[in-house]
Simulated scan of single mutants.
Amino acid sequence: MTMQIAGRIVTPDGVVEDGHVTIDGALISSVGAGSPDGAERAAWVLPGFVDIHNHGGGGHTFTTGDPDSARAAAAFHLRHGTTTVLASLVSSPFALMRDATAAFLPLVREGVLGGVHYEGPYLSGARCGAQNPDFLRAPDTDELAALIALGEGAVRMMTIAPELPGALDAIKLLASHGVAAAVGHTDAPYDVTRAAAEAGATVATHLFNGMRPVHHREPGPVLALLDSPGVICEVVADGVHLHDGTLSFVAGAARGGYALVTDAMAAAGMPDGAYELGGLSVVVADRVARLAANGSIAGSTLTMDAALRQAVGAGIPVVDASRATSWTPARAVGLSGILGAITPGLRADLVLLSEDLQVTGVVRAGVFQ
């Protein structure tokens, strides 16, 4: 089946004004100028959003390993333009990580999920944020190798604090299997963070958040990650995790590029109230999720379309913000040869937007959702 969608088409090279995308089956076949008769129209046509850090939404969670809940959470974010989402676990016992990986593997094969992200449990107790401290532990390469083997390619990323004993060996193991090693929830000094990048770490988990802050005599992880050309920096663009000025700074300073992520939890799209994350009680008020025990930020209620609008509102051009919601995160987790851009031969994942960047339609693998 062939169809065409017309509007301002955002490609890796810029914007095709009054252009169109031709879709043949599940793939993009061409991008050209003009608006053919019968084409579906939108003000903006962007690549489908790729969210590489997401714990749930719409009242559903990825963190328990329940496949029905995962399917529902992915469907919620799909309605907001996220055509590829990683199911992010939080720090958990090995048994839960193992069972969740096995449960999510069929969803990855089906295309409901883009893969699995382990945010922990190899994290710093001093910078654990909303991670359950009862489940934190030192890196175990045997445990990690077993999870990677079980995932059969579904494990796409793992967040690690590089100062922990054995962390650099774990990062090297991840890199050797094509799994993105992300630096996060860390109290590491500058030189240890640079060593992690040299060992193969390629992502910074929600930069600034869950990290030792910058100091002029000990720059810490933030500046080391920003200055590493091989590291893509995640940023949570919700106006809560980062000031818009910080977001704009990262957009200009990250040598390896930056990716917008949601870090969403089950409360995304839901009313304020009481929720749970990794066994910890969370209270959401005025869209902000915090641990009931100490007020630490506990994920977000963000969706990727809202993140795009926040970035544009912070002064980032639409083309650059689009790259940060699609191509760059796809590249971060090894999917850029399959999806993440409006380019012939890639999967036809598109989000249609109004002039004010509200979602008006979503296409995944050539099918309107």
Rank of each mutant, 00 (worst) to 15 (best):
M1R: 08
M3T: 13
G7C: 05
I9M: 00
P12Q: 05
G19K: 01
V21F: 02
S30T: 13
V31W: 04
A43P: 01
A43R: 10
W44P: 11
G48W: 00
V50S: 07
H55A: 08
T61E: 14
H77D: 07
S92H: 13
F94Q: 05
A100K: 00
T101Q: 07
L107C: 08
G111L: 05
V112L: 02
G114D: 06
G115C: 07
S124I: 06
S124K: 00
R127G: 11
L144Y: 01
L147M: 01
R156K: 13
T159C: 10
A161F: 08
I171G: 07
I171N: 06
A175V: 12
G178Q: 05
V183Y: 06
G184N: 08
A195I: 12
A201D: 04
A204F: 07
T205R: 00
H206A: 04
F208D: 08
N209P: 08
G210F: 05
M211I: 10
G220Q: 05
V222C: 10
L223G: 14
P229A: 12
G230R: 02
C233L: 03
H241K: 01
T246E: 13
G252C: 04
A253L: 09
Y258K: 00
D272V: 14
L280K: 04
V282W: 06
V282Q: 07
V288Y: 09
V288W: 07
L291H: 01
S296W: 12
I297S: 10
I297W: 05
G299S: 09
M304P: 09
L308F: 02
A311N: 04
A321W: 02
S322Y: 06
A324L: 08
T325A: 15
R331M: 12
G334F: 08
G337S: 11
L339C: 15
G345P: 09
L353I: 06
S354E: 04
V363N: 00
V363G: 06
A365H: 05
G366D: 00
G366Y: 00
